[in-house]
């Protein structure tokens, strides 16, 4: 058995072992009779997204449903923007300190720190900071910012490592200081890729910010969860469509900005 075959065989054994440990049966992958009915109700509502509350008991003076959708989406963006700003401020310097340009005594501890930051999911950080700081916006922003800063630092360091360092070393050659040579000789070359990746992470932060609603923050996820629990599937679809539109808009906007950086 050659190396490739033995690797494939080991992966197959690992997969079978996981299925056996979870007591998974193929039939479990399909919905039950009750579940199928829920799925039918849910997907049939996709054609009729709500433009008003589905509930018959709406308090007097409550803002229109679509206004609530707009506010929820805006709060989702606020959390994501605040978290990404913090992540960039922390992550970009860490990417430089974790790149091969930094001496080993700096690079290695930074890479360990970055590994720790990104190995814990933002939702787990949220649980931790909610307990440590309490229920406020700061806890949610820090919870999102830590793993995002870690991921930016790791990918950023790899991008810097792959960038040609000829101009950097040429500048060092005529006496330029390390930081100046880094900012003037290396960073401009890595900026288009770094910016592109940061925009991608911003889209991820929007999704994570929405999920923070499950912890009680008034982002899109908060309202989505409430609508789902009340079986108001048409409202759920309105939220989902609004979310898809937001992500598509961000994709188009970030694509335009990326092109401007590269051009």
């Amino acid at each position: 058995m050659n190396h490739r075959t033995s690797t494939l065989f080991a992966l197959l054994i690992a997969a079978l072992w996981a299925w056996w440990q979870l007591d998974l049966k193929f039939i479990d992958l399909f919905p039950t009779k009750g579940g199928a009915q829920i799925a039918r109700d849910f997907f049939s509502a996709a054609w009729r997204p709500a433009v008003d509350y589905q509930s018959e008991f709406v308090p007097e003076g409550a803002p229109p449903f679509l206004w609530i959708v707009l506010q929820g989406m805006l709060r989702t963006i606020y959390f994501a923007t605040a978290a990404m700003t913090l992540a960039v401020v922390v992550g970009v310097p860490l990417s430089a300190l974790g790149s091969r340009l930094a001496p080993p005594w700096v690079r290695i501890p930074v890479r360990i720190l970055v590994g720790g930051m990104r190995s814990v999911h933002e939702l787990l950080w949220a649980i931790f900071f909610l307990a440590a700081i309490g229920f406020n916006s700061g806890a949610a922003v820090i919870a999102l910012a830590i793993p995002y800063a870690g991921t930016l630092a790791k990918i950023g360091a790899e991008m810097l490592d792959e960038t040609s360092d000829r101009a950097y070393h040429a500048m060092r050659g005529f006496g330029t200081g390390k930081l100046t040579a880094f900012i003037a000789g290396l960073l401009p070359q890595a900026t288009p890729d770094l910016a592109g990746y940061t925009f991608y992470r911003f889209e991820c932060a929007i999704r994570s910010s929405a999920v923070l609603g499950f912890f009680g923050y008034e982002t899109a996820g908060y309202y989505l969860k409430a609508s789902f629990e009340n079986l108001h599937y048409q409202e759920v679809w309105t939220w989902l469509y609004a979310f898809v539109l937001l992500v598509l808009f961000l994709e188009a906007w970030s694509g335009q900005l990326r092109r401007r950086f590269v051009a």
Partner: peptide, 9 residues
């Protein structure tokens, strides 16, 4: 950039 060797950051 040619003069960065004589300049501060």
């Amino acid at each position: 950039a040619g003069r960065f060797g004589r300049q501060g950051l």
